[in-house]
Each structure stands twice: as structure tokens, then as C-alpha cells.
Simulated scan of single mutants.
Amino acid sequence: MAAGTATPVGIGVVGIEHLHVFELVDGLVAAGCTPVAHASASDSLADLYGTWQASSEPVGAEAVLSDPRVDVVVLAGVPADRADVAVAALEAGKDVLSAKPGVTTAAQLARVRGAATASGRRWWVLFSERYANPAVLRAVELARTGAIGRVVHVEASAPHRLSPDERPAWFFDRERAGGIVVDLGTHQVDHFLAATGADAADVQVVASAAGSTRDWGDDPARAGFEDVGELVLAAPGVRGHHRIDFLEPDGFPTWGDTRLVITGTDGRLEVRIAVGDDGQHEPAAVWITDHRGVHRDDEVPEATWARDLLADRADGGERFMARDHAFDVTALALQAAAAASGWGTA
């Protein structure tokens, strides 16, 4: 429920094209929201969603946006289509929570920003590799409170499992999906801004790259699909090196072996996924290396993004994220994608 009220916040979903929709809605429902209606062109996922949230009515997109019971519109459609729906939702007086990437072009981002400014409503993008990962939240908290001195470097790698036969056709179309830097790169920009506290206006894209390492043979629909990418970011006194890919081997027990290393003048923070002797993954943990030695930090916070979102919606606060954060992250990712050289280019 919204903070300070007894009225449940209604959720309307437009676009059920990616499994991220289940993460977004699950968080909001756990925080007290009520699923009201959903619209999707993907029958298989829409059926699964409808079974999961039986109180949600299957309707058209316009019906979702015009429903007075819907307060927050959740977007998980084809990435290139999300901006149009976001603008329509904002103009209808709804707040918007989008899966990443929230948009795929700079022109789309400008339209969403204009609609958010004019309406006064909120446009959030859930960068789940931080907001839904307690270990990353803790590492950022430690970095920002001076546990390792002044942060001078951020290094992150984010290999993802591709599982190509389980992906929809749009996923391999750069125009529809946005490309690897616009997609996975948003997590990396979010990590850099959060860990360093840098003002987005002071961040420079030093270098970026994207490309394809696979030979898809006689499958022209997937030819040229970007499965590797890189971003090098810099702000006053700090740099970031970030690698993203879809090369995680199928043998790893979860979707990707993501790593984050934050280096400061007095120590280092590392977030990594542990794999036990049985080959199964364990929750990500924070390791601190400082002048006392190497130790594991077990003060892992609860992921509160959904409750924070509802509290911000109620009073205009910025607990979940600053009003401009999703715009800043997306703008830098788009800038990096536009400047990207080919992978392996000398």
C-alpha cells in the first residue's frame, strides 16, 4: 500500500515480452500493490502472468492506461516500444516502472523526459543488478560511507547466459532490443554512479565497444548480434572499466557470474557469486580488503526498492532513486552505444 494511505496502489502491465516483468511485479505486490490489468502481444508469457496474477484482467493497452484503478504502469514489452507506452502512461497521469532498457534511442529518451516533466509523474527503471542485489547495495553503502577511503576505480564484469533458443526473435534485432551497451550497459553505468557518487554531468565516456563473436551460420536473423561490449567511464578522480557479454557458459548454475570490484585509497570491496563444492551457487557476498586484512561483510541489507518506490510516490521523495537517475544512466549508456567501436578494433 502507498505510504500513509489505506488504498492499495493498482498495477497495470503493458508488454509481457521479458521475464523481468515477474521480478518487477513480484516486488510491487510484496510491497502491497494490487495487480489490476495487463496487456501483451506475447501469448505464452501473458498466459503465465495471468495464471500467476489471477486478479489482473487481460485487456488492451489503451484500457490499461485509461483504467482509473491503475496507478503504476509496469513496462516489459519490446524495448523499442517502451518509450511510446511510457509517454502515454505519463500523459494519462500514471507513474511508470520499466524494465531496462527504458528506451533505445536518444530521441525516445527526450520524449519520455518531456512527458515526465510536463506531467509531474515519475519514470523509474529498475536496474536490478544493484537494486535487487543486497550484496551490491551493501558494497555501494560501504564505498559511499568511506569504508575504503576515497573511491578511485570501479571494475565490473557482467557475463550473462545467452540460451539463444529460449530468446524471442526481437532479442536478436538491434533496432528492437537496443544493443548490448544500451541494454546491459545501463546496469554498469548505474553501478559506476552509485559507487562513486559522481554527478552524471561530470562523467565522460572515455571509450566503448560492442560486437559479435559468434558465427551464426545460416541463421541471418541472428547474424551480427552483439554478444560482447565494454565501457570505460571517468569522473573527476575516478575511472570505471566495465565488461558485458552473453558468453556465460551453460555450466554456471545461475544466469551469470557477475563481479564488482570497488577500489579506494584505503582498501578494496569485492562482490562475487560463490559456488559451493556441490556446484550450486550461493548468494553474492561482499569481501573487504583493508589494512586489517581480508574479511567477509555479512551485514547485507534487505532489498527495499519496491517499498521505497511507493513511499516516493506518496510524498515525492527520492528514496528509491533520484528523479533524474534513470534519465542520467540511460543517457550515458546511449552515448556509449553511439560512440562504440567494433569489438577487437585496433
Rank of each mutant, 00 (worst) to 15 (best):
V87T: 05
Q335N: 14
G185I: 12
T330A: 10
R111V: 01
A326H: 00
T213M: 10
A88D: 14
E230W: 13
G179I: 08
H18M: 00
S212I: 03
W255Q: 08
A194H: 02
A135D: 04
V275W: 00
T186R: 13
F127K: 03
A200R: 06
P220S: 12
L97Y: 05
W255N: 05
H242Y: 13
A340W: 07
Q335Y: 10
H187W: 07
A41E: 13
R111I: 07
R121L: 07
V72F: 03
Y131Q: 07
D277W: 12
G15K: 03
A169F: 11
S98M: 04
N133Y: 00
H281P: 11
E270V: 15
D308K: 10
D199E: 10
H38D: 07
G93E: 02
S341Y: 11
P220V: 11
D165S: 11
P68V: 04
P35M: 12
V154S: 02
S212T: 15
P101W: 01
L109P: 00
H281W: 10
V238L: 10
A331L: 10
H18C: 05
V96C: 04
L109W: 04
W52I: 07
V36I: 02
A118I: 11
H191W: 15
P168T: 09
E141Y: 08
W124S: 13
L162F: 13
W170C: 01
I262D: 01
R214H: 14
G211L: 04
G251D: 00
R307S: 14
S208G: 06
D250R: 06
T51Q: 14
T263K: 07
A169S: 10
D215E: 15
A76T: 14
H153I: 06
P79E: 09
F192N: 01
